[in-house]
Write a protein that binds this DNA or RNA. Sequence first.
DNA 1: GCCGTCCATATTGTATGCATTTTTGTAGAC
DNA 2: GTCTACAAAAATGCATACAATATGGACGGC
Lengths: 223, 223
Amino acid sequence: MKNQGGTPSKTDESSAASLVSFVVDSIVEGVLKGQYVPGQRLIAADLAEEYGVSRAPVREALHVLAGEGVVELIANRGARIRKLGVEQLFNFLEFTEALLAVGVRRVTNKKLKRDEIALIEKAFQDIEQQCERKNARELLSALHRYHTVLNKISGNDFVEFFYNRPYIRFYTSLIHEFAPGDNWTQFIHNYRLIHSTILSGDEHTSVATFVAHIRWVLQMMRG
Amino acid sequence: MKNQGGTPSKTDESSAASLVSFVVDSIVEGVLKGQYVPGQRLIAADLAEEYGVSRAPVREALHVLAGEGVVELIANRGARIRKLGVEQLFNFLEFTEALLAVGVRRVTNKKLKRDEIALIEKAFQDIEQQCERKNARELLSALHRYHTVLNKISGNDFVEFFYNRPYIRFYTSLIHEFAPGDNWTQFIHNYRLIHSTILSGDEHTSVATFVAHIRWVLQMMRG
DNA sequence: GCCGTCCATATTGTATGCATTTTTGTAGAC
DNA sequence: GTCTACAAAAATGCATACAATATGGACGGC
């Protein structure tokens, strides 16, 4: 329970520049943690009480998330966490493939600095680790961080910005339902290849490898 | 006293449903028409009066648009229409290239029905026309419609949904500042090629042609 | 028992009030 | 003439009040 009584104290340690962004962040966090599941209804008054604020900022936060595509807003019936069918999720992954390929291509082409390589390597270590542990949810998170690093280095700030939008992270996290299953070794094998081709500097190969991997994932998910 | 100045002629469900969506639509319309320009400040009280509603729904609408990325929301300083630097616009175009290539590829691969071909042809006529008239703004609009048709036919509803988000349309419309200049003939020549390769059914060629075109546009814009 | 009606409750939608913050405009020092 | 201090005005952020709409359950007709 955050902050009872009328006065919203902004002294709440870190984040909130405003109550709205505080609530937005909280809900996004909850969604990514699986605390809120797709289809779940979000009742403004409840959230207001939970976060110790009034309904106004909660409603505004819900509208932000509606604009983001994280929640669905139905007239006079409030908000619920957006729910994607499996086919939509496949389509989303195909879309993501195209999006991330931009970063992969640009980074491959770029003359990388020493510290940039270090960042990429470090992010890749996380992928290896989560693959080892066979933790689908964490693996997806690590993959997201890896590509975020790539995107940042790529210099296309639009893609970078974009890939970190809440709903992209949200939808990405949903893929965890389709864990690699028995194919963890194939998965990490693929990603090692992607990783090394990116560093190799051959644009064509890195993109092709990456695209082929996503297609493989899609095929696996469909099966 | 609901609707005075704005008149967002949208009579379909979304507008009438709530004041919030009414205001959202109105502002989006205004942005696409150039009535609101990037960087312009949007004062909630003014909009409230203009649309004959209170500040509450206006604020919620602004938050939706902030989630969309159409407006920027700065704490205690309100909302302004998001402004992109030229480099960001280039990056956006590169992003769009990746996005639209998905639709181009899928449509090329697909066995098209007669009426689907008709739709595509019809949309292409618009491009030809606007190119003839050398109307940059309308050309971009026609291009958007063309690719919307492709996306719809492609079957990837995510891309379709996505490409019609307000801020995609908004950013796309911003490109009109970089009109083809002296290169209208080259432009339409390229697009005729794209169009015919899509119908030809050769995935590799159609995507390559499309990508090459976008790269050409980017190079032109940079010069 | 099954159906629809009607009413109480729950929830959302909109308007308004007030405190806080930013912006603006002005007077005075230099 | 330019700069700073500072107070008035404007605008935002949040809370609350009230109206409109949806939800669910009791009740009665069949």
